[in-house]
Design a protein around this nucleic acid. Structure first.
Length: 481
RNA sequence: GGCGCUGUAGCCAAGUGGUAAGGCAGAGGUCUGCAAAACCUCCAUUCACCGGUUCGAAUCCGGUCAGCGCCUCCA
């Protein structure tokens, strides 16, 4: 079965067919870089990272674009209030661009730790002022936008399709009636394409309408069309962006006469202890904090154990469970790698059969709207068979295939086993030598049945973070996870 | 007030018409000097509740209760 994606536009799963055979263009809404990235920021990138890796494995050439918003995102309601970056700049006494750089890099650093591949293009809004102005002019020319007082607004009334993504009608909006009406706007639903800059506004550019800055939504329309072209394949982002951000993006692009994204994906939120993560309540955990305490792969694994469209509740207990489950997979992977060094040539029928099943079930799972929990379940089922087979000393050819499949699916697609976690001896040669020496002393003690000494050595090593296991081939050790 | 989502074992979480995946935790067993890792066995007659449709429903329909999201910045 080919890949099916739940398309928010049609509200059902559809076969994903790239517009140009062999090529896929993906645009993912990135963060506004005005603060440290938290756990919630990681879910989208990890989800679409798996999608990207999966498409690549199908032999498709993927261009992955994810923007950095560094201007135009206001603090308050739709068209009032300070720019988030600018406010932060004042707070930290920095240039707005310093703020943007600082948090852009912290964002990318955290994602790298989570084994998320870098976008092919990470366009900045401030680097595309001209493109945004050009699109705004197209909209004015076509009668879908108007200038007022040095600002330009999109005229929602002029575009009947407005609401097709979120399913909202003008009546819904009126019923809500929480959008503050701004004098110069013709309709409360109208949103800014360009904003006049007050004298104290830090970020400002000249424009046909005077000095100002771009509205928040216009950047994504302009940049996605620029780098992915008309009618590009897929646009993705957080469920909260569905309205108004993505609705606005579609209206801007299509009203200007450009075919826009054909598929839309929206990932759900991560809750922290059952509550929404929000700065205002302090209920949030920064990625940097998590990284300080836990191997990032535990977090990645935790997130992938839930379907991307489900709400995921993140708890300490859940993280502990994810860690233990992850280690089960990692141990098996390491064991295969280890056994391969000295295995004689040969095939193992049971192991090969388990690999066939794994490849089949894994593919079925991911093709069903990126069902990573089921793909992981397939991996667990395989690991049980693998461990059983390992007792029978499978031959090299089968082990090699197991390692290859494990690598291709576990790391290549799910991104769970970067080289870093496979390396047992993280401490280098000195540590290697010291541990070997201690273990040989311990072995001698064990031969002499001096278990008091041998256990003391083991306990002390464990305290220091070195795990010791006695196996038929002699003692094995590893650092930490 | 409007729109929408969710409710599956102690915890997490798949499953959207054919008779409950998987992980963690827990119990017992094998292996081990003891552990660890691994393996084996057990662990929801039942899917918030009440009705209905159907040969058959966790899955569809209606209602009730509970939690959550969006409608305003938000991943």
């Amino acid at each position: 079965m080919p890949l099916q994606i739940y398309n928010t536009l049609t509200r059902r799963k559809e076969e994903f067919v790239p517009g140009t055979p062999g090529y896929v263009g993906i645009y993912v809404c990135g963060p506004t870089v005005y603060g440290d990235p938290h756990l919630g920021h990681a879910r989208g990138p990890i989800t679409y990272d798996v999608l990207r890796r999966w498409l690549r494995r199908q032999g498709l050439r993927v261009r992955f674009v994810s923007n950095i918003t560094d201007v135009g995102h206001l603090v308050d309601d739709a068209d009032e209030g300070e720019d988030k970056i600018a406010r932060r700049a004042k707070l930290e006494q920095l240039e707005p661009m310093e703020v943007a750089e600082k948090y852009t890099w912290s964002y990318f650093d955290e994602l790298a730790a989570l084994n998320v591949l870098r976008p092919d293009i990470a366009p900045r809004a401030t680097g595309h002022i001209l493109e945004q102005q050009a699109l705004t002019q197209e909209l004015i020319a076509k009668g879908h936008a108007y200038e007022a007082n040095g600002s330009v607004y999109f005229s929602v009334n002029s575009w009947p399709q407005y609401g097709k993504l979120s399913g909202r009608t003008p009546e819904d909006e009126e019923a809500g009636a929480r959008v503050e009406v701004r004098e110069e706007k013709r309709d409360p639903r109208d949103f800014a394409l360009w904003k006049r800059a007050n004298p104290e506004h830090l970020m400002r550019w000249p424009s046909p309408w005077g000095v100002g800055f771009p509205g928040w939504h216009i950047e994504c329309s302009a940049m996605s069309l620029k780098y992915l072209g008309e009618g590009f394949d897929l646009h993705a982002g957080g469920i909260d962006l569905q309205f108004p951000h993505h609705e606005a993006e579609i209206a801007q692009a299509e009203a200007a006469g450009h075919a826009f994204a054909r598929y839309w994906m929206h990932h759900n939120h991560v809750l922290l202890n059952g509550q929404k993560m929000a700065k205002s309540t302090g209920n949030l955990v920064l990625l940097s904090q998590l990284r300080g305490k836990h191997e990032p792969m535990y977090v990645r694994f935790y997130l992938l154990q839930a379907h991307y469209r489900s709400v995921l509740d993140f708890t300490d207990e859940g993280l502990e469970a994810a860690k233990n489950g992850y280690l089960r997979l990692l141990n098996a992977y390491r064991e295969v790698h280890h056994r391969l060094q000295a295995a004689p040539s040969g095939h193992h029928a049971g192991l090969e059969a388990a690999l066939d099943i794994l490849e089949r079930d894994f593919e079925t799972a991911l093709n069903d709207d990126l069902n990573t929990p089921q793909a992981i379940a397939a991996l667990f089922a395989f690991v049980t068979e693998l461990n059983r087979a390992l007792a029978e000393r499978p031959g090299r050819e089968s082990l090699a295939r197991a390692e290859r499949v494990f690598t291709e699916l576990g790391e290549g697609v799910l991104g769970l086993f970067p080289a870093r976690v496979l390396e047992h001896q993280l401490g280098g040669e000195l540590l290697e030598g010291l541990v070997q020496m201690l273990l040989s002393v311990r072995e001698e003690a064990r031969q002499n049945r001096n278990f008091k000494l041998s256990d003391a050595i083991r306990d002390r090593l464990i305290e220091l973070g070195v795990q010791v296991e006695d196996t038929r081939e002699g003692p094995k050790w590893k650092v930490g996870a």
